[in-house]
Design a protein around this nucleic acid. Sequence first.
DNA 1: TCTTTATATTGCAATATTACGATATTTATT
DNA 2: AATAAATATCGTAATATTGCAATATAAAGA
Lengths: 117, 117
Amino acid sequence: MQYKDKTMGATKTDHFTDNQNQLAVLAKALGHPARIAIMEYLLKVDTCICGDIVNELPLSQPTVSQHLKELKNAGLIKGSIEGNSICYCINEPGLEKIKGFFEHISNHLEKKRNDCC
Amino acid sequence: MQYKDKTMGATKTDHFTDNQNQLAVLAKALGHPARIAIMEYLLKVDTCICGDIVNELPLSQPTVSQHLKELKNAGLIKGSIEGNSICYCINEPGLEKIKGFFEHISNHLEKKRNDCC
DNA sequence: TCTTTATATTGCAATATTACGATATTTATT
DNA sequence: AATAAATATCGTAATATTGCAATATAAAGA
């Protein structure tokens, strides 16, 4: 997770705007079905949920923990210690940011139809 | 780009729903600042654009070509041969699909506030 | 305190992604 | 036909991601 743009193979984040990099981080965090599943589960259970997430997914506990960490780092979920377990829920600012990107595109397309392809 | 769930290191797509996998593919395609930049450029130029995309990005021609291919495979852009060059523009169905995911989450959150974290 | 339960971290193997030089392909133009 | 221009593909090196077993940590309950 370095992204230092030193040599080959690493994403050249330096050459893009902060906004582009932020959106990419958010999108990337959702670029795995397990992490989509986690978001859907957090939504389904209505409130924040403590524990249970591991049992909902077809992956081992360390793997799920890692996915949760990535979603948290990207700002899509947040978690707080709740006694024995950890309580996770969706982090709205992160979600609104990427949602806004798609709405922006969609609104633009609506105004100016591009039917040449 | 196999995703066969054979051994270690490969994403276990088999264990998730088609919908979850499709959303993950769309999100993953936007999980790189260059591909965000391409989408923004296609939006900015208003209509479909032939050529020029390579010159807009701080990456080599083969690298840009590869990014365009990924966006196309994910269904976020479409391209048609236009004489000497290729005419690219945003593919609305792909965009609407992922946009819908975020709206779905956002709508749900609005109804049921989760303020426990 | 000891055990149980829940979650995180470490270490590592397998696979995927990123980037680009070199080269191929394809179409337009001369 | 030969050249030029635009884009794609190949090959390869560097880096990142995925997944899990083993282990560590931290809090709850006996």
